[in-house]
Write a protein that binds this DNA or RNA. Structure first.
Length: 419
RNA sequence: GAGCCUGUAGCUCAGUCGGUUAGAGCGCUAGUUUGUGGCACUAGAGGCCGUGGGUUCGAUUCCCAUCAGGCUCCCCA
């Protein structure tokens, strides 16, 4: 790229005309499906208190330790939100949404910020949509989340993916499992990767997620958490699977699936696609029964997911899926001479008031240039106005697709658009 | 945060084994058609060859740095 004086920050991109239409189409699908599932939209500020994100997402996570944009002004510590689960839960607690009764079913669409090295499918400002069910520990809540997520991809036509599912257990199961895992790994501690060594004490489950070659042989034969779930968590996981089966949603149980945020409990899931390259996660989520309390609310079980919109759009491009129709316009008005131009300037609002999309050339160019413009704008009709037409009160109404013309009055033209 | 690769017109890319005016296709503007688009032909506009420094008589071509992009690792959406 030749340098211009100003440009976007690293990893932050403009969404230009031609691209925006895809975003709107995607957003419309999300809003429609959310309505069908009876989820309500929530919009929270782009910035949150730093402490909320640290507590919510986890002090030791990569997101908090190296990926947040934060600054301080006066006594306030601001952070650009890196994800939306903690902020939504904050809103739930702050506004006492539990008082509305029942489980709160919330969804969101918006930009997130993480200070990572950009690459394909990874930006510093990126967009997610997602939802949270706060106030239910019923496995059906988990499955409704997953079902909604899958429904979006199904509607768009992305089929080439894998739904991975696991249970990371409740605190009791997890502590028991962590001990078992540590005992299993301890004899080979020295052979583990450096990264895994640092995780050994605090979060040995993350070792399962390691891609370091030296860790692989130990991971392969590691004890599996599903063998160490207590009765409640095991039953919960069983029901999640059962409901997924009932919905006909295919999944793969992946005992190594451990997700990045600290707040996950029990159900964890991730949707990956081979069409994305290295950053292959389309969406991910899970249950977070302890987060509401962690943030200062009453103990409240909850579950949710987040999906990357850029990654979804990349998958669409790879698969040749057109999300948006080519843009078009009903009528392009072509004028010859000053009198005709004045007439057109006066007529545009009339057409628009009748719901007809219309415009004219703003550059005072030749008729040929105006016709080319009409063509470029994908006009269905060109309305050609010259002195003859003004005198007769009948105008050349050209069908640009069929290349046919009629002589019509304004009323007759407008009538054509009445269905 | 680490490694590798790339950076020439709005876009996709040629090219210069270092040497006077840097090329194509698409797109854009206009003409061929003094009142008609999409096709064709013609012409034109548009590049400090990403930026800064070094080597050299001379660099867009070589070297270094930097910025940006891609791929991989890490991690996640």
């Amino acid at each position: 790229m030749p340098k211009t004086k100003y440009s976007t920050h690293l990893g932050m991109v403009d969404i230009l005309p031609g691209e925006v239409e895809k975003w709107r189409a995607l957003e419309e699908i999300i809003h429609e499906e959310a309505a069908r599932y009876n989820f309500e939209e929530i919009r929270t500020p782009i910035m949150e208190q730093t402490e909320l994100i640290k507590r919510g997402v986890g002090q030791l996570t990569d997101i908090v330790t190296k990926e947040i944009f934060a600054f301080t002004k006066g006594d306030s510590h601001y952070v650009l939100r890196p994800e939306l689960t903690a902020p939504v839960v904050r809103a739930f607690v702050q506004h006492h949404l539990a008082q509305r009764g029942g489980a709160q079913k919330l969804y969101y669409i918006g930009p997130m910020f993480r200070a990572e090295r950009p690459q394909k499918g990874r930006q510093r400002q990126f967009h997610q949509f997602g939802l949270e069910v706060i106030g239910s520990d019923d496995p059906i809540a988990d499955v409704e989340c997953i079902s909604f997520m899958m429904r979006i991809y199904q509607r768009i036509g992305i089929k080439n993916f894998t739904l991975k599912l696991n249970s990371v257990g409740d605190p009791e199961s997890r502590e028991a499992y962590k001990s078992v895992l540590r005992e299993y790994l301890r004899p080979n501690f020295e052979k583990l990767s450096e990264l895994s060594k640092t995780r050994f004490e605090k979060n040995p489950m993350r070792i399962l997620d390691s891609k370091e070659p030296e860790d692989q042989e130990f991971i392969q034969n590691a004890p599996v958490i599903s063998d160490h779930l207590n009765e409640d968590s095991a039953e919960h996981f069983k029901l999640v699977c059962k409901y997924l089966d009932m919905r006909g949603i295919e999944y793969v149980i992946d005992p190594l699936l451990v997700r990045g945020m600290d707040y996950y409990t029990r159900t964890a899931f991730e949707l990956t696609s081979p069409d994305l390259g290295s950053q292959d996660a389309l969406a991910g989520g899970g249950r977070y029964d302890l987060l509401v309390e962690e943030i200062g609310g009453q103990p409240t079980p909850a579950v949710g997911f987040a999906a990357g919109m850029e990654r979804l759009l990349i998958a669409c491009d790879e698969l040749g899926i057109q999300l948006a129709d080519e843009k078009s316009i009903d009528v392009f008005m072509v004028c010859l001479g000053d009198a005709a131009r004045d007439w057109v300037i006066g007529q545009l609002p009339t057409f628009r008031e009748h719901g007809i999309s219309t415009t004219m050339d703003y550059k005072g160019r030749s008729m040929k240039a105006q016709m080319k413009e009409a063509n470029r704008q994908n006009a269905r009709f060109a309305l050609i106005v010259g002195d003859n037409e003004l005198e007769a009160g009948k105008f050349v109404f050209r069908n640009m697709i069929e290349s046919t013309e009629q002589q019509l009055s304004v009323d007759e033209i407008i009538a054509q658009f009445k269905d």
